[in-house]
Write a protein that binds this DNA or RNA. Structure first.
Length: 466
RNA sequence: GUCCCCUUCGUCUAGCGGUCUAGGACAUCGGCCUCUCACGCCGAAAACACGGGUUCGAGUCCCGUAGGGGACGCCA
């Protein structure tokens, strides 16, 4: 059997992190099995669906590197097919018209609540003669679902889950205005798209039971289900905006790399022995639904950051440079000229050892793009005492006399200088750092000198010495 | 409230009856390295929710309890 999975978001907002993980698991499973990963946009709620959201979902998936097979299906465009299925059930006597008013349903709900029961439609039109139909009330179409027995979901993640059919009432297939409901659309679409494995959040577990009934009524094979636990916020509660229910593009803007994000999401609820840093190739090879945990996982930004740092360090200099230039240009509000680019690319190897996000990398590189005379931060100002300035003063001609300007040559000269002056290297390096970077932390000082170049370095030192 | 699911260090997890005095990772705290900050390395503290069974033996199986989550729409 060819495995076909799908990701079916409703375009009512950005692609949030929970959806991203669901998409990732679907994608991984399809790739692992050599099957297909399809995309369906569930835009049947016309009021809440927007084109912007559709675009955001596409962009989010692309950013994460989750490519889908075939053209995306837009659910709303298939409304006729969906209602056709409902009409077929009607003709076969497996569905019926219900003329209940909203008020009647409200009453049922209130009564159920008062009696401590869940709201269940009482089936009052189930076997009633259609000739009883009230004038001018447009009916909904309901499924004539079995009233006893049980429906069993053999879930790849949750195991065998049983629901008593009496708890599953006659769900609405077609609304009074004739449009199909979610429950109907999903089943018809998944069937028509040939979906073999439905991987989705476990908030859909009860829906799986209802949908199973629908599959059976329609005479279709029931696909395999895999209901994965939801992601929770750091506090264990539902994901809130404050706690990470952001669009994936927000994570991009916070300086995370898509590969790191993917790795992190993968490890949330799934593990492979002691493996932590897992390449996409390995993930595809190792991923399987039966290893997905059943308990919800909390998002942990510290771990995400740590992983991101690992991916930054493992990036090639060229790759990282490409990632970081737009981040910097965006933060700086100007584009980088050749000089800026050269300085940045020289310092990248050193910069990437000390940043957990590309945003942090920018902060650490910021001094490269500042204009003279440098604005010194508080600590740098404090560090540049008269004594420190005189060290720079004495060192300046030594550096100016260097015939060659490389990390090796400046290091040799400065170490020699410190030796001659009976100073510890730190006593020379720290003032240099403050003068060159305007702050007391930076990449290795010889790399800084190298990146800035001879002229700029000497000029910045001169600004301080005088 | 009803139904369903879940419960190993603070967090993510390994563990699929004996090899568990419970392993790894992040975070935390020490130390080393060192021109600062990082990286790296070494080390410490830190968990089987509780109560009953089953078994020669339970983190691992069963049943309760407690706690957490999800579902109960003419939303998806």
């Amino acid at each position: 059997m060819t495995v076909v999975t799908r990701f079916a978001p409703s375009p009512t907002g950005f692609l949030h992190i929970g959806g991203a993980r669901t998409a990732l698991f679907n994608w991984l499973y399809a790739r692992h099995c050599g099957g297909k990963f399809l995309l369906r946009i569930e835009d049947t709620d016309r009021k809440r669906s927007t084109d912007d959201a559709v675009a955001a979902i596409f962009a989010g998936l692309e950013w994460l590197g989750l490519d889908w097979d075939e053209e995306p299906v837009f659910q709303f465009s298939r409304a006729d097919v969906h209602s056709g299925a409902a009409n077929r059930l009607l003709a076969e006597g497996k569905a019926y018209h219900c003329y209940c008013t909203q008020e009647e349903l409200e009453e049922m709900r209130a009564k159920a609540k008062a009696e401590g029961r869940p709201m269940r439609y009482d089936g009052r039109w189930r076997d009633r003669d259609p000739s009883d139909a009230p004038e001018g009330v447009p009916p909904v179409v309901r499924l004539k679902a079995p009233q006893d027995g049980e429906t069993v979901i053999d879930d790849l993640v949750q195991g065998e889950v049983r629901f008593a059919n009496e708890q599953l009432d006659d769900m609405i297939l077609l609304r009074a205005n004739g449009t199909p409901t979610y429950m109907l659309s999903v089943v018809v679409d998944d069937h028509d798209m040939g979906v073999s494995h439905i991987v989705r959040g476990d908030d859909h577990l009860t829906n799986a039971a209802r949908q199973t009934l629908l599959y059976e009524a329609l005479g279709w094979d029931v696909p395999a289900f895999a209901h994965i636990p939801l992601i929770h916020g750091p506090d264990g509660a539902k994901l809130s905006k404050r706690h990470g229910a952001l669009g994936v593009e927000a994570y991009r803007d916070m300086g995370y790399l898509p590969e790191a994000m993917r790795n992190y999401l993968l490890r949330l609820g799934w593990g492979h022995g002691d493996e932590e840093v897992i390449s996409t190739e390995q993930a595809i090879e190792w991923f399987d639904l039966d290893a997905v945990g059943r308990s919800p996982a909390r998002i942990d930004f510290a771990k995400l950051e740590n992983l991101n740092g690992i991916y930054i360090r493992n990036s090639s200099d060229e790759q990282l440079f490409g990632h970081v230039v737009p981040v910097i240009e965006n933060a700086l509000g100007r584009s980088l000229g050749d000089i800026d680019r050269n300085r940045l690319s020289t310092l990248i190897p050193s910069l990437k050892e000390r940043a957990k996000t590309t945003l942090e990398l920018f902060e650490n590189a910021r001094f490269l793009f500042m204009y003279r005379p440098l604005e010194l931060d508080e600590k740098a100002t404090k560090l540049l005492t008269d004594e420190a300035r005189s060290v720079i003063n004495t060192l300046l001609p030594v550096l100016a006399d260097l015939s060659e300007w490389t990390p090796e040559s400046t290091e040799a000269a400065i170490r020699q200088f410190a030796d001659d002056q009976s100073l510890k290297l730190g006593k020379v390096a720290q003032p240099l750092r403050a003068a060159l970077c305007g702050r007391t932390t930076s990449p290795g000082i010889f790399d800084v000198l190298d990146a800035l170049g001879r002229d700029e370095s000497l000029a910045r030192l001169g600004d301080i010495a005088n």
